[in-house]
Design a protein around this nucleic acid. Structure first.
Ligand code: SF4
Ligand code: SF4
Lengths: 155, 155
DNA sequence: TCAAAGATACATGAATAATGCATATTATAA
DNA sequence: TTATAATATGCATTATTCATGTATCTTTGA
């Protein structure tokens, strides 16, 4: 019972991009690319991660339209939305995959027709996500200055 | 992000015992063993499970003092508490293991000193368990009659 | 036309959960 | 007292999923 690293990596990437964006004097036009784009290599060096894995997460975030990716030379990616428009429940649900937390079929459980448990767990799961729904990427950037310092210091 | 089968097996066992207990005219003395005790074999045949795995879960439930186990001939196990005293949050926390849902150390994440995420997820996890806390084994036995029928029919 | 970036597909490795096996221990009954 | 039926316990193996690696393709700017 633990979130996948994959999911956390996605959030780290968003935090990195959010913190960096805060660094410049905040362009209003968000689909305009900043000076130099963040690359997968940047992320890997900052967090000491495997580029292959990050590759996939970045791609996924792109498909979700949370970031915009640019291929080719001087390519990279940046936030496609304002931090306060990126809800944590959405990010985690999508990256994590939204499967039921308890598996009653496969193999089929005989108790299923009379079981109250799966409904209770499913409701609990929704409460978890309801709570996450109250937060956005902006909430993760409360200590933006400190994050910037960490990210710029980390090799 | 899914509960372990191990945990669900534990709940199935409790449901089985609870439904069976409802069958007889409810002895008040709960540490008194009923006529014939439920065995691991019974559980395995009912749910088509591996006896080794069930073995361990039964042992675990015994250590948690949710059931009382009896070794030797005519041994087996039965509920050590009334169903309404067995809270689901406790059962699931214990069987599942109460680790954090997001892993910030091991390997260490550079963002940790300035990260808001782990706290948010930890709080969401507690809300999940807070919800489960409202339910007991008795709530899982709402359809006791149907459960009894299922369990007696299942080979 | 080269090089630097992400996109994509597939293969491999690592971690953990699930299961299997063997044997010890205990309690009951014949 | 002995056979038997049950849980207890430790270790081995298998399966599944996650994480990571390798290779190649595509795009794009210089
Ligand atoms: S016991 Fe209930 S929750 Fe568990 S597998 Fe069976 S039907 Fe699903
Ligand atoms: S980003 Fe935050 S939550 Fe994720 S590992 Fe780092 S410190 Fe923990």
């Amino acid at each position: 019972m633990q979130l996948k690293k994959y999911t956390d990596y996605g959030l780290r990437i968003l935090m990195y991009l959010g913190a960096k964006e805060g660094a410049k004097e905040s362009s209003n036009n968000r689909t305009e690319a900043p000076e130099r784009l963040t690359t997968i290599k940047d992320i890997c060096e900052t967090f000491s991660l495997s580029s292959n894995h990050v590759n996939k997460v970045v791609h996924h975030l792109g498909r979700l339209q949370l970031i915009e990716t640019r291929r080719g030379k001087n390519g990279g990616f940046f936030l496609a939305k304002a931090p306060n428009e990126i809800r944590l429940d959405y990010v985690i649900r999508q990256l994590e995959g939204d499967e039921p937390w308890i598996e009653c079929h496969n193999p089929y459980c005989v108790a299923l027709p009379a079981c109250e448990l799966n409904g209770i767990v499913a409701r609990g799961k929704e409460l978890f996500y309801d709570y996450l729904r109250e937060f956005t990427l902006a909430d993760l950037l409360k200590k933006r200055g400190q994050l910037q310092q960490i990210f710029s210091t980390a090799s």
